[in-house]
C-alpha cells in the first residue's frame, strides 16, 4: 500500500510568508512515493527543504502546485485533513515546544481528546502509548523534570496515542545527546518492526546509515534515493551537497584504498564485526 505520494510538488514560502519577493521555491518539482512499512531517513543540509517536505506530508503546509497524497487523500482536501493528520503523525525538533500539559498523562490525552475518543478508550490509549516508548512509570510525572530523550519519548507517545500509520520525525534527534539519540532510535526501530512507516529527517549520516532507504534532498530537489549502500557509493556527490559519509564507511573506504578489502560497511557495528573476524 502506498502511504505517501508526492506528485510534482512545488512549494514556496513567498506567498503566505511574504518576507521577501521572488523567494526561490523551497521545494521544486518533487515526486516521491513512500510505501507503508518503510524505514526511511530523509537527509539534506540546512536549507535543503527537508523540513518543508515533512510539513507537506501531513498538510501543515500544502503545495503551491502538484499534489501530496496521504493514503490516497489529497492534503488539499480540507474535509479530510484531520483524517490525514491522524494517519500521519509528526514529532518536532524541540520536545519542550510540543507539549501542552503539565502532567505526562494529560499531555498524551491531548491527541485522543482532539479526535473525540471516549474516556475509557483514552485511558487505554495512554497506557498503550506510554508502554510503546517504555515510559509507563512516568505517567504522573511533570515533563519539565525529564531528560531530553525522555521528553522526546513522551512526545512520540503523544502521537502514538492516536494510532498513526506513519510517523514523521522532523530532526527529532538533533537536540539530544548520543544517549538520547539511541533511545529514540530504539523506539522507532521497534515501531517499524510492528509495521509503522517511519520517516526520520536528519543530517547525521551515521544515523541515516541505519535505515532501509535514504532520500537525499538538495536545494529543494530530489538528489538521491536508494538504499544506504547505493547512496554512500556516491561519495563525491554527497560531499558536494554538504553531507558526509558515515564514519565507518569513510574509514572503510580508506582501508580499501590501502589494499585492505573488508567489503561493504555501513555502520560502526558492522565495521567492528568485520574487524573482529579478521585473520
Amino acid at each position: 500500500m502506498t502511504a505517501i505520494e508526492f506528485k510534482n510538488v512545488v512549494f514556496s514560502y513567498s506567498e503566505d510568508g511574504g518576507t521577501e519577493n521572488n523567494i526561490e521555491p523551497a521545494v521544486k518539482e518533487l515526486s516521491l512515493t513512500i510505501e507503508q512499512g518503510e524505514f526511511i531517513a530523509l537527509c539534506g543540509h540546512n536549507g535543503s527543504g527537508k523540513s518543508t517536505v515533512a510539513r507537506l506530508m501531513n498538510g501543515l503546509l500544502t503545495p503551491k502546485s502538484g499534489e501530496v497524497l496521504a493514503f490516497g487523500e489529497s492534503t488539499q482536501n480540507k474535509k479530510k485533513i484531520y483524517d490525514i493528520r491522524k494517519d500521519v503523525g509528526m514529532i518536532f525538533q524541540n520536545p519542550d515546544n510540543q507539549m501542552i500539559a503539565t502532567i505526562v498523562e494529560d499531555d498524551i490525552a491531548f491527541g485522543p481528546e482532539n479526535i473525540g475518543l471516549p474516556r475509557e478508550e483514552i485511558g487505554k490509549r495512554i497506557d498503550f502509548a506510554l508502554g510503546a516508548v517504555d515510559m509507563l512509570e512516568f505517567k504522573q510525572a511533570s515533563p519539565y523534570k525529564l531528560s531530553g530523550g525522555q521528553k522526546q519519548r513522551i512526545a512520540i507517545a503523544g502521537v502514538l496515542a492516536v494510532k498513526p500509520k506513519v510517523l514523521v520525525l522532523d530532526e527529532s534527534t538533533a537536540m539530544l545527546d548520543p544517549k538520547g539519540r539511541r533511545e529514540i532510535f530504539d523506539v522507532i526501530k521497534s515501531l517499524n518492526k510492528e509495521g509503522m512507516t517511519i520517516i526520520l529527517i536528519t543530517h547525521y549520516m551515521d544515523e541515516a546509515a541505519l535505515f532501509d532507504r535514504i532520500i537525499v534532498l538538495d536545494n529543494g530537489k530530489l538528489a538521491m534515493d536508494g538504499t544506504p549502500k547505493e547512496v554512500f557509493a556516491r561519495q563525491t556527490e554527497l560531499a558536494e551537497i554538504g553531507l558526509k559519509l558515515p564514519r565507518a564507511t569513510k574509514l572503510n573506504s580508506y582501508f580499501k584504498e590501502n589494499g585492505l578489502d573488508l567489503g561493504e560497511v555501513l555502520s560502526t557495528d558492522e565495521l567492528m564485526e568485520k574487524i573482529c573476524q579478521l585473520k
Binding site: 510539513r55 501531513n58 501543515l60 484531520y82 493528520r85 491522524k86 503523525g89 509528526m90 518536532f92 525538533q93 524541540n94 519542550d96 515546544n97 510540543q98 501542552i100 491531548f110 491527541g111 482532539n114 479526535i115 512526545a155 503523544g158 502521537v159 492516536v162
Partner: peptide, 14 residues
C-alpha cells in the same frame, strides 16, 4: 516556541 507549539498542536489533530 509559540510557532512550533502551534504546529505541534495542529499535527496532533487539534
Amino acid at each position: 516556541r509559540a510557532n512550533e507549539l502551534a504546529d505541534a498542536m495542529d499535527a496532533r489533530c487539534y
